[in-house]
Amino acid sequence: MIKFTEEHEWLEVEGDIATVGITDYAQKALGDVVFVELPEVGATYDKGDEVAVVESVKAASEVYAPLAGEIVEVNEALEGEPGLVNSAALDAGWFFKLKLANVDDLDELMDETAYNEFVEGLD
């Protein structure tokens, strides 16, 4: 199952673990990513908390927790190769894995069709 937020994050969910990254729309808007600051494994966040920072050549942008949960893994490949966020936003460019505090919270998020409609409405 894949879900999306209005902050242009995607969540690929297996059981209660969500792999989180930013969407193609987001990486295009950011431009060339040069650095990603990832959270600590074991840290817990509420929905909307600042979890990570993604820096393009021009500016730094925050990544927010799409739902409440605990960080169980981070994508260490981004430390050496932050450009994966641009080149492979939806797979190798993932940021972190979140153990969801409440799987039912996923119902609040958009599915792919709803997200695509949301993005079309932005331009």
Binding site: G31, D32, V34, S56, V57, K58
Partner: peptide, 12 residues
Amino acid sequence: PVQYPLGIMKEH
């Protein structure tokens, strides 16, 4: 213009 379609990195 802050950038063109080429992007900041490639423009640089």
